[in-house]
Simulated assay, not measured.
Amino acid sequence: MFGNYLIGLREGLEASLVVCILIAYLVKTGRRDRLAPVWAGIAAAVVLSMAFGAVLQYGSTQLSFEAQEALGGSLSIIAVGLVTWMVFWMRRTARHLKAELHGKLDAALAMGTFALVLTAFLAVGREGLETALFIWTAVQATSDGVRPLVGAALGLLTAVLLGWLFYRGALRINLAKFFTWTGAMLVVVAAGVLAYGVHDLQEAGWIPGLHAQPFDISGAVPKDSWYGTLLKGVFNFQPDPSWLQVVAWAAYLVPTLALFLWQPGGSAPKPAAPAQTSPAAGKPSA
């Protein structure tokens, strides 16, 4: 549940920040009459994201067991790829997000109403589709259709509240640090999703080695115990993984987390110091 709360919070906060920046810019520049197209684009993005989640959930139930496992495993790996790209992108652009969105909004205003709708739709829709896909894979991994959704919903509600506080100017936090640490936690969650995706593909018969296990601690960590459920919900922990699951988990987590935490901050280069002028000659000195 915590892992899904984190997903909802992280993705929802990104979308909330985007919405706040777009709306605040229009209000401050005296263009309140252009708010309706922005809200229309946001509403369309939310509807599309919910529809995408519903198609994944109800469409997969019509498939055979092997097809369900193949679909779940494939989408889990795609979700891990999308989330990995997202956390690196947000870490790099968090400081410059406002200026980037202002530029896109100026261009959309010059092009007309449809461009405004499209700008808001794309800005929010990307986060919504990623959230729907990642939460769906989490629901499949835990075989629990309630707690993952509750956790994600609480995360999204928290994100909306934080977004409103940002807009009102009542909250000031270092977004670069926030997205760095939540991104690191999401990398850990994504490693568990990747491992379970490999398990699904093994059950579908696409990858061998399902019964080749390095260890089995089901006796010490029963799957139906409260701590087994907690580890499963947060980290997608499995007490009896296959060798390939363990290798995939470690091969993703160790280099990705190291690269993410050691990555340069991406701050803008400092401007060059002005040339010194020689008092005698009135020209720049060497």
Rank of each mutant, 00 (worst) to 15 (best):
Q245M: 15
A281M: 11
A280E: 13
A191I: 12
F235M: 04
F179Y: 13
P214Q: 10
S242I: 15
H211F: 06
Q245D: 04
G228C: 11
I217H: 09
A281K: 12
G266V: 01
V189S: 12
F215N: 02
G219R: 03
P241F: 09
P274S: 09
A268W: 08
G209Q: 11
V234W: 03
A184C: 11
A191E: 10
A184S: 15
G233I: 00
V188G: 05
D224R: 01
L194A: 12
F179K: 03
T229D: 04
V198Q: 02
P271G: 02
V193M: 08
L244P: 07
V188H: 06
K232L: 00
L231W: 06
P241Q: 11
A212G: 00
V188Q: 04
A273K: 13
W262L: 14
I207Y: 14
D224M: 01
T229M: 08
A212Y: 00
A273R: 12
P269E: 02
D200Q: 11
W226D: 12
Q238M: 04
I207A: 13
Y196V: 07
T256K: 10
A248H: 01
E203V: 13
A275H: 09
V187A: 03
G209K: 08
L210R: 13
Q202Y: 06
Q213H: 04
L244R: 05
S218W: 10
A251C: 05
A251W: 00
T182G: 00
A190C: 11
W181E: 07
S278A: 15
K232I: 00
P284L: 07
W206V: 15
A190P: 05
D216K: 06
F260C: 10
W181A: 05
Q238T: 06
W226P: 07
F215D: 01
T277P: 04
D240F: 09
G233V: 00
P269D: 07
L261P: 12
P222M: 02
A281N: 08
D224Q: 05
L244N: 08
D240Y: 10
A268D: 13
P241Y: 11
A275S: 11
G282M: 15
T277W: 10
E203G: 12
W262K: 14
D200L: 09
P274V: 08
A250G: 00
A191G: 08
E203N: 14
W262R: 14
P269S: 05
I207K: 13
T182H: 03
L257H: 13
S218P: 10
A184E: 13
W243Y: 15
Q238L: 07
A273G: 06
G228I: 09
W226H: 10
L259F: 05
W181Q: 02
W249Y: 11
V221L: 15
W249K: 00
V187N: 02
V193K: 01
A195I: 08
F215V: 03
I217P: 02
P214E: 09
S267F: 01
P279V: 14
K223D: 05
Q276A: 14
V221M: 14
G183A: 08
M185Q: 08
T229W: 06
A184D: 11
W226G: 07
T277A: 06
Q213Y: 01
W243N: 14
Q263N: 11
Q202I: 04
W243S: 14
N236V: 13
V247E: 06
V246H: 09
A190M: 11
